[in-house]
Design a protein around this nucleic acid. Structure first.
Length: 646
DNA sequence: GTAGGGTTAG
């Protein structure tokens, strides 16, 4: 009976059509001779496992009962880990328990790894908790399981528990636990771990070091990150990518690119993660030509399909104002994650293309394997708001509240609704909505309502909201400007002066406004009143010309955008020196007739500059693409895609 | 047997 079973196994392994002679020759391949026939059960199991024939291997396991030993379980578990075969692995585990097999630490570690790879962290943790003795691999495998899946708190808690045990962490443990050291608590612990690492002279270990520098970068401590990077005795693609993406994630885009350029000269190698990080930096700068260059390079490298890299490309093209390319990449992807959909949706949203947002969202809802998340709904709601689809947006929010999307609305989704109502001119309703919502309103939320009040000249609510904002966010200069705009629009000059004095008293520090324009792969950057550009004389001459020409065509400088205490003439001068006007003017003199102008501003564009850009588009017949902090303004023949609401 | 960097939003 036993012999028959083994023969069956073998016949199953060899192709059914193979002649008997090939079976004999295969015996010799496996160093089996007829004298050792029937074959060793261990070899039968090994053959089945290495062939991935798990079903047959399990039958073999069941038949052997108590004969199973360490190597047998090891082979089975390896096969299950390789195939992420949860049910099969679970049966192996159950077999160990049923036969009262005393599994050594090594095998229990394999079980932890098996369950983690199958995303069954509860089961993995149970194995760990029931181990009479744990070694460094047991702890590290479990910490890694948590940290790789984003359960930072659990990873840190377990690490602390490990420190209280008899087992010492090693370089594997440190490298993995540091990636969970985020947030205030995580960073504090991370610093202590750093001291521990120094004590163990592990701080120059390349895995530990890159994890360490990444932790500092994510905490915004780029100098510390750079120091760790410098101290590494060798550099590889991961450590180089970590420091580059560190800069990019902090918005230090130009620095990220400069470092990438330098490390390249020093011979660093890049992979798809590096390119994804570099694309992030290029998106921030809206450097379309450079972005295209990276895209071409990536295509020439003939890399396999990486969804992360494709997502970066979608985002880069969208933030550089080229949505057609984004959509082309999106459509050609063999598989997409929720991030791919989000990147595309947010792209349409920032360009004010409400109809496309809603259509794409419908398509997404029809995909069975993709679930919308919180970012998806933010994109959709703000897309509806920016794209003139207020009614649809409010319906979608209603569905959210009723649990249809499986995403619970948070404060930011509520903020989108305030935007939707405000944009539709329903300022009172928006105000009531804020009072009723289950969250404490944030400054951003009040700010959105204040914007609505300005556009729809609702002075009563605007005044209340404005003063509320100045209380909770006195340092934000933007609030003073909008409130002053609101007073100015109704001729309340006394109040305009009061707001201005208030701002001076509170010593508001404003992030300096900057605008730039890309020409021939070079970024030309301007700040307000900038006199550093090599072609400044031409720019100022042209600006003088524009100011006269535009006034004849009906342009009135909106002096309420200037809060300095100076006379009107001075105000106008300050206004003409705004960075986006300088960049636009430079674009006019440095590009050929009718070429579109693409200008990027690091803050929200002011009312006067928005108006100025409309005149540029109308009088010079130019398409103007203006990207500000929040969205794109596509201005064509004097009309902006934002509908003058942003 | 256990390890580091990455894409959307803010």
């Amino acid at each position: 009976m036993n012999l028959l079973r083994k023969l069956n196994c073998l016949f199953h392994y060899y192709p059914k059509s193979a002649p008997f002679s090939s079976l004999i020759s295969s015996f010799t391949t496996h160093q089996l001779t007829l004298t050792t026939f029937p074959p060793d059960p261990q070899i039968v199991l090994a053959t089945l496992c290495s062939n991935g024939q798990l079903k047959e291997a399990l039958i073999e396991m069941a038949a052997r009962g108590l004969e199973m030993k360490f190597e047998s379980y090891d082979m089975l578990l390896n096969a299950c880990i390789k195939k992420r075969a949860f049910r099969e692995g679970q049966r192996v585990h159950a077999h160990m328990i049923k036969t009262r097999y005393l599994a050594p630490v090594y095998l229990r570690n394999r079980l932890i790894i098996f369950y983690s790879k199958c995303d069954r962290l509860r089961e993995a943790r149970n194995v760990l908790d029931e181990m009479p003795e744990k070694n460094v691999v047991s702890w590290t495998a479990m910490i890694s399981a948590y940290s790789q899946r984003g359960f930072a708190t659990e990873a840190l808690d377990l690490f602390l528990e490990m420190l209280r045990s008899v087992t010492e962490p090693n370089e594997f443990t440190f490298a993995t636990v540091l990636s969970s050291c985020t947030g205030t608590f995580g960073f504090e612990l991370g610093r202590q771990i750093h001291s521990l690492i120094i004590k163990k002279t592990l701080d120059t270990h390349i895995f530990v070091g890159s994890s360490l520098l990444d932790m500092y970068a994510k905490a915004g401590r780029i100098h510390e990150a750079r120091e760790v990077f410098k101290s590494l005795p060798e550099r590889d693609v991961v450590s180089c990518t970590a420091i580059i993406s560190g800069y990019a994630q902090l918005g230090l885009d130009a620095e990220a690119l400069e470092l990438f350029r330098r490390l390249n000269l020093e011979g660093m190698s890049s992979n798809y993660v590096t390119y994804a990080s570099v694309l992030t930096a290029l998106s921030g700068l809206a450097a379309l030509d450079l972005g295209k260059q990276v895209h071409n390079h990536v295509l020439r490298c003939k890399l396999p399909f990486y969804v992360v890299l494709q997502n970066s490309l979608i985002d880069m093209y969208s933030k550089c104002g080229n949505l057609i390319y984004s959509r082309r990449i999106f459509d050609n992807m063999p598989e997409r994650t929720v991030i791919s959909w989000n990147a595309m949706l947010v792209g349409y949203s920032k360009h004010g293309m409400g109809r496309e947002v809603v259509e794409l969202y419908k398509l997404m809802r029809n995909e069975n394997n993709i679930k919308p998340d919180s970012v998806t709904l933010l994109g959709v709601l703000s897309g509806c708001s920016h794209g003139g689809m207020e009614i649809v947006g409010l319906e979608i929010f209603e569905e959210m509240v009723n649990g249809k999307d499986g995403v619970e609305p948070d404060i930011e989704h509520y903020g989108c609704v305030v935007d939707l109502l405000g944009r539709a001119g329903r300022v009172e309703e928006a105000f009531e909505f804020i009072k009723r919502m289950p969250f404490e309103p944030t400054a951003a939320l009040w700010g959105s309502l204040l914007g609505a009040c300005r556009v729809h000249s609702n002075i009563d609510i605007g005044e209340f909201v404005g003063h509320r904002l100045l209380e909770i966010e006195p340092e934000n200069a933007g609030n003073y400007v909008i409130l002053s705009n609101l007073y100015a629009s109704t001729g309340r000059w006394e109040d305009v002066r009061m707001v201005r004095n208030l701002m001076l008293k509170k010593a508001v520090k404003k992030e300096p406004g900057r605008s730039w324009i890309e020409l021939d792969q070079t970024l030309h950057s301007f700040h307000a009143g900038d006199r550093s550009h090599p072609r400044r004389e031409e720019v100022f001459a042209k600006m003088k010309e524009l100011s006269i020409k535009f006034k004849e065509a009906g342009y009135f400088p909106d002096l309420s955008c200037v809060l300095h205490d100076v006379d009107e003439e001075q105000k106008e001068k300050i206004l003409l020196g705004h960075s986006e006007k300088l960049a636009l003017t430079f674009g006019l003199i440095a590009t050929s007739d009718r070429a579109p102008l693409r200008v990027i501003k690091n803050l929200r564009i002011c009312v006067d500059c928005h108006n100025f850009a409309k005149f540029v588009s109308k009088i010079y017949m130019r398409e103007v693409y203006l990207r500000d902090k929040n969205r794109f303004h596509h201005i064509s023949m004097g009309v902006c895609s934002c509908g003058d609401y942003w």
